[in-house]
Design a protein around this nucleic acid. Structure first.
Lengths: 165, 165
DNA sequence: AATGCTTATGAAATAGTGTAACAATCGACT
DNA sequence: AGTCGATTGTTACACTATTTCATAAGCATT
C-alpha cells in the first residue's frame, strides 16, 4: 500500500478541474443564496484559484490588468475578495495578507491552515480536535469566539524531503 | 467565593508594576544571553507595554517621536521590535500587524491569543490541549511545524457583558 | 591607544497593503 | 420611465514594511 498523497495543495493534479469545480460550486451557491457572482467577482475567484498558493490582492490585480484592457483600482479587487470571503468561496490568510480558494465552499466549519514556508502552499484543514480545544480554551475564560484563526507555518512533507536529501 | 479575574489584559491592575517587571526580566535575560538591551530597544519595549492592547509599529514610532527630540525612522522601530520578538520579550499579532508584550518572557511555549474585537485587548494563553491538538494534526499530515499561530477574535467577558446589558 | 571585527543605528527613498469619499452605473421591481 | 439598493469606477490617501547605503558604537586583540 502506498502512502496517501499529502494534499492536493502540494501534489500534482488536474488543476483546471479544480478551478472549474470551484467556479461551478460558487455559481450554484450564489444562485441559491440570491447573490450575484458578477464578472469581476467571478474573474477574481478564478485568479485566486490559479494555484493553491495564497495570492496577494495586488498579484491578482496585476493579473486582472493583463487579462483585461484596463487596470482596475485596488478597491475593485478588495471588494471582490471581501465578497468571496463573506460567501465562503475564499479564505484570507492573515499571516500572509493573501487569499486562497476554499476547498469546501458552502459549509462553514472552523478552518486551520498549514502554510509551507518553503513552497508557499497552504493546506486547508478542518480538524475537530483543534477546533474543540480552542472552543474549550475560550469558554473557560468566558471569551466568545467570533473567528478563530489558526495558521501553522512550517515545512510540508515534499519540501522537507527535498531539504533533507 | 468571587469569580477569578478574567485576565490581566482586561482587568484593572497596577500597570506600572507590569512594565517595571517586564523591563527587569528583559534586562536579566539579555545579561544572561549576552545580548544588548540598548536604549532604543528598551524604550520600544516600554512602549509596547504601555497597554495590554497590541500596538502598531507606527503608533510606537509616534510615541518615540514625542518622547525624544527627533523622530526616528520606521526602520529603527522595526529593528527594535524584531529584536524583542526574537528574544521572546514581545509577540507579533499577525492578524493585527501589531505587537504586544510577552507575559512569560524567557520561556518558549506555544502561545495563543484571545483578541477582543471590541476593546482590543489581547490575552496570551498557553493552552496545552490546543498546542497538542495542533501538533497531532500537523504530524498526521507529515507537516513540520515551525511556528503555530493562533489568534482568536471575539468578545472578552467584559465587553460581552457590557454589550449584553 | 590603535586596529580590525561585529553589531547596532541613522537617513532617504520606495515598495506593499488597504481604505475613505464620492460619483456613476446596473439590475430588479414598481 | 422611475425608484431603490447593490455594484463598480475614480481619485486620493493612510498605513505597514523593506531596500540601500552610510555611520557609529561596543569589543577583543595587538
Amino acid at each position: 500500500m502506498t502512502a496517501a498523497p499529502y494534499d492536493i495543495a502540494s501534489e500534482p493534479h488536474d488543476h483546471a478541474a479544480c478551478v472549474d469545480d470551484a467556479l461551478a460550486r460558487a455559481e450554484a451557491l450564489c444562485e441559491r443564496r440570491g447573490v450575484r457572482l458578477t464578472p469581476v467577482r467571478r474573474q477574481v475567484l478564478e485568479l485566486v484559484w490559479r494555484s493553491h498558493r495564497p495570492r496577494g490582492a495586488y498579484d491578482i490585480l496585476d493579473d486582472l490588468a493583463s487579462d483585461n484592457r484596463r487596470r482596475p483600482a485596488p478597491l475593485t479587487v478588495y471588494r471582490a475578495l471581501d465578497f468571496l470571503v463573506a460567501q465562503g468561496f475564499a479564505h484570507r490568510l492573515e499571516s500572509l495578507n493573501a487569499f486562497v480558494g476554499c476547498v469546501h465552499p458552502g459549509e462553514r466549519h472552523p478552518t486551520q491552515f498549514l502554510v509551507c514556508s518553503d513552497c508557499g502552499a497552504a493546506t486547508e484543514l478542518h480538524d475537530r480536535d483543534v477546533a474543540e480545544a480552542i472552543d474549550r480554551s475560550a469558554a473557560d475564560r468566558g471569551f466568545t469566539i467570533e473567528r478563530p484563526m489558526v495558521e501553522i507555518k512550517g515545512l510540508c512533507p515534499l519540501c522537507r524531503d527535498r531539504a533533507g536529501s
